[in-house]
Design a protein around this nucleic acid. Structure first.
Length: 869
DNA sequence: GGCACACGAATTTTT
DNA sequence: TTCGTGTGCC
């Protein structure tokens, strides 16, 4: 280890700590015991370095071997960020002799956590040690804490975790009950208000204190009501997974301190994405020490809309005194040219931590640009291009398609399928969001947590059992009755023996309402009454099973049988029944996998630990129940199942989803104003800056090749809308771009940019000159240009031969003649791609026998084929 | 209570 | 274009 390695670049950018007294206050408790640093360091020097240490570059090594005290690693894209974190963990254990269970590494996504877990496992000799390290997302860590310490918050230890949709249902219920304005946008507005409060670490009381007008007061009041309703349902939402542990720490700093003493080494990945609540949580967790190592890149801050605050990373050195700062600026991932392009784009943002990414890698291939005449053509270009490369020997898993919004994925999915390519979609409608999965999980939730009214109301009439809106209304109304707290109570009351003079009704003004609700409930007859009874039976039977089985699988299978779910699916929509049944099968596999997973026992222990001594309820403490509890937690937090294609697949995902990943070849699609950047009229500059960082993230995912595509027309809500190229695309130096000959446009620019006096697209787009011109435009109303009414003109002289060659639909006439077509690759609009086996007849009407990739052998008429060569 | 139909609104991005 | 909600009829 060289001494010079530890010399840190002390240049610091402006810090925001001093501007925020609250933050500064928060920080003061955090740095201590620096006196021991030197000793420990010397001890470190005496120990033998593991063999992998010399594979790291000097700054990486510096970060890895840093032991105690705050550490800030400013890691540019592809600079070995995860490598540093994982090696640092290994170094702490193997060289520093640190106990593995005192290390906690926090990430933002489950994927990142999994990845880190794998890599740490590979570095650490003793797998028993490896398993003791806590590597988790913020939310999982929060869930784990809550599960263990719920009683301290007077929260039922058996709480459910509400996802987005559950949250919205609860909000909608509350609005209805409060006779407030309803409707989707109102629900969303309330939801984002509540989330924003929780992201800031603000309780309803604090929100109320800070409310200075009536509207704000009403909002805060709603937040309070909502929290009350959650509590009543024995549930927490995503925000609570951070917020409630935080409350716990605020109320009992001693408790936080004890935890902090246990967790001696904290590491946070993607630190630029922390929100204030998470930041405060970290402050509490380091109250007994200051061993906080954070890694991040302010250029990759893309979660501001979710409350993330990049000032945490920008002001870290100020907040934590004697922070060691390490900058990782060497990029190992991308070719020089791709890196240049990324730098071109991000250079337009100010307010960055100054850094300069560089690489030793060669220049590499040009970035390919393709502009389709419409979005479908764009998608088919991408599919064909990938198909070609795979045919030449590339592996499907080397390719990724990135888009701004999930909805864009569909077209690409269609085209990939057409070309017979395997693909996997990351994000979007996740596995656990599928209706059939949510149904089954809701049953299980309703069985395990009878207070969970959202789960109960979801499945009380699924499959149909005669419990419609009217009956549900009666059940809801019955909640007014004293002693009837939850829907399941109400359901039970229908058939219960109630003495005429029961104390069910207290005296008071509510008496009449209660009595009416009671009568309405008891007057239920026929299918409705039987339906409710049947529902309760199903839950009871499932609870019974939870007592008598150890494994979850039979519990779920018997449930499915009991409610005849397969038949229900079949009847509901035969077209998709098969898919849904497969999904159910996958759910069962996921449960089994979970039960046999090596990490599960630790989870179960955490849940077990939470069971209060007085809880002797055999149901909630049975083995199967514990497993179910843990599985439900996980299914709420882990959004997708691992259904990776065995033989490799092309990856489709949003740019947000791509962060932290890398691919040999990246297709960045939909590069048009309005789509990406995705802006609405009147958006502020910071939003644009975030979009720009998003572009930076996307470009820097590519290792060797980058394709950028867009379309001159795009369907929005089924209507074609004209587009213009993304400003981010225009920021990339033209000498880095190569326009694909099949492109509809013979250059980068299309549409109005020509009208702005740019004779040639290249002259105005080089670096700073391009920037000023560009932004001059925007200041005189760029928004008007791109997002609103005025469609751009398409007055380009396009090379017709090129356009025809590509723009012809697949149904167009075949464009090769003679018999050399035997063995050729062709494409058909319905069957996709195939190989010509034989020909009979001639001309456009000739019959061709084709072996299609997707559907096998078919005979088709030649004019419906496109010859690909 | 359940179904079929019409209408209107809607798209960021995720734990 | 697709989704979810509301309406009117059986």
């Amino acid at each position: 280890m060289l001494l010079s390695d530890t010399v840190t670049d002390q240049r610091r950018s402006h810090s925001l700590c001093h501007k925020s007294p609250g933050l500064a206050k928060l920080c003061t408790g955090v740095h201590k015991n620096n006196g021991t640093n030197l000793q420990v360091h010397l001890l470190f020097l005496l120990m033998k370095d593991p063999h992998w240490l010399d594979k790291l570059n000097p700054p990486q090594r510096q970060a890895v071997t840093h032991h105690r005290g705050p550490l800030l690693v400013l890691a540019g894209a592809g600079s070995g960020k995860t490598r540093v974190l994982t090696h640092r963990i290994a170094h702490l254990i193997e060289v520093g002799g640190v106990s593995p269970d005192s290390i906690v590494a926090v990430t933002f996504t489950n994927r990142a956590a999994d990845e880190m877990r794998h890599r740490v496992d590979a570095l650490i000799a003793d797998q028993g040690d490896a398993a003791k390290i806590i590597i988790s997302t913020f939310h999982s860590l929060g869930a784990r804490l809550l599960r263990s310490y719920a009683p301290r918050l007077d929260l039922d230890w058996n709480f459910s975790i509400y996802d987005d949709a559950d949250q919205r249902r609860l909000i909608a219920n509350l609005l209805r009950r409060g006779d407030q304005e309803q409707g989707r946008s109102e629900v969303r507005q309330k939801q984002s208000y509540i989330d924003a409060c929780k992201n800031r670490g603000q309780t309803p009381e604090q929100a109320q204190e800070e409310a200075f007008d009536q509207k704000a007061e009403a909002q805060a009041q709603f937040y309070a009501d909502y929290q009350q309703a959650l509590y009543h349902a024995g549930a927490v939402d995503f925000g609570d997974l951070i917020m409630l542990p935080l409350l716990l720490f605020r109320r009992d700093p001693g408790f936080a301190r004890r935890l902090s003493e246990q967790w001696q080494y904290l590491m946070v990945d993607e630190f630029q994405d922390t929100n204030p609540a998470q930041y405060e949580l970290l402050a509490h967790l380091t109250s007994a020490h200051d061993n906080l190592a954070v890694v991040g890149d302010d250029d990759q801050a893309i979660y501001r809309w979710r409350g993330a605050d990049a000032t945490h990373i920008l002001g870290f050195e100020k907040a934590f005194q004697s922070t060691q700062v390490v900058k990782l600026e060497q990029n190992y991932r991308s070719t020089a040219l791709i890196l240049d392009a990324a730098n071109d784009v991000i250079a337009h943002n100010d307010q960055r931590h100054p850094k300069q990414l560089w690489t030793e890698r060669p220049r590499g291939e040009s970035i390919v640009l393709f502009t389709g005449s419409d979005d479908r053509e764009e998608a088919s270009f991408v599919a064909e291009s990938i198909f070609d490369q795979i045919r030449k020997g590339a592996a499907p898993q080397d390719f990724a398609i990135f888009y701004r919004a999930n909805a864009q994925g569909r077209l690409f999915e269609e085209q990939l399928r057409q070309w017979g390519l395997n693909y996997r979609i990351v994000g979007g409608l996740s596995f656990y969001d599928r209706r059939e999965i949510k149904d089954v999980l809701a049953y299980l939730r309703a069985a395990l947590n009878p207070y969970d009214d959202i789960a109960t109301s979801r499945v009380i009439n699924t499959p149909r059992r005669g419990v419609g809106a009217t009956t549900l209304d009666k059940l809801q109304a019955a909640l007014a009755i004293d002693g009837v707290e939850h829907l399941q109570d109400a359901a039970e009351l229908i058939d219960a023996d109630v003495p005429a003079q029961s104390d069910l009704f207290s005296t008071g003004p509510k008496d009449l309402i209660q009595r009416e609700a009671f009568e309405a409930l008891r007057s239920l007859r026929g299918v409705s009454r039987r339906g409710v009874a049947n529902f309760l039976e199903v839950l009871d039977a499932t609870r019974d099973d939870l007592l008598h089985f150890e494994s979850l699988r039979p519990v779920v299978e018997r449930l499915l049988e009991r409610i005849a779910y397969a038949e229900h699916i079949e009847k509901d929509d035969p077209d998709v029944a098969e898919d849904r049944l497969l999904n159910i099968g996958e759910l069962i596999s996921a449960i089994e996998e979970f039960e046999s997973d090596s990490a599960t026992p630790a989870l179960l222990d955490a849940v077990r630990q939470a069971i209060p001594d007085e809880a002797d309820d055999p149901l909630t403490t049975s083995e199967a129940s514990l497993r179910l509890r843990a599985f439900l937690d996980r299914s709420a937090l882990v959004r997708q199942s691992n259904d990776d294609h065995p033989d490799g697949a092309v990856t489709l995902m949003t740019i947000h989803g791509s962060k932290g990943l890398e691919f040999d070849t990246v297709y960045l699609v939909g590069m048009e104003e309005g789509t990406f950047p995705n802006l609405r009229h009147g958006d502020e500059p910071e939003k644009l800056a975030e979009e720009r960082r998003l572009a930076y993230v996307a470009i820097t995912r590519a290792q060797n090749r980058l394709f950028i595509t867009n379309a001159r027309r795009r369907r929005v809500y089924g209507q074609f809308k004209d587009t213009s190229p993304s400003r981010f695309l225009l920021d990339i130096s033209e000498e880095h771009l190569h326009v694909d000959p099949r492109s509809t446009v013979d250059g980068v620019n299309f549409g109005k940019h020509r009208h702005r006096g740019f004779s040639s697209s290249s002259s105005q787009r080089t670096s700073s000159a391009g920037q000023s011109l560009y932004f001059d435009q925007s200041s005189d109303g760029f928004d008007d240009l791109s997002f609103n009414q005025a469609p751009p003109d398409w007055d380009l002289e396009v090379d017709d031969t090129l356009v025809d060659d590509y723009a012809d639909d697949y149904e167009g006439p075949a464009d090769a003649d003679g018999d050399d077509i035997l063995g050729a690759t062709v494409s058909h609009s319905r069957f996709g791609v195939g190989e010509v086996l034989s020909i009979s007849g001639d001309g456009d009407d000739a019959l061709l026998k084709i072996d299609f990739v997707t559907v096998g052998q078919q005979t088709v008429i030649r004019k419906f084929l496109k010859i690909l060569g």
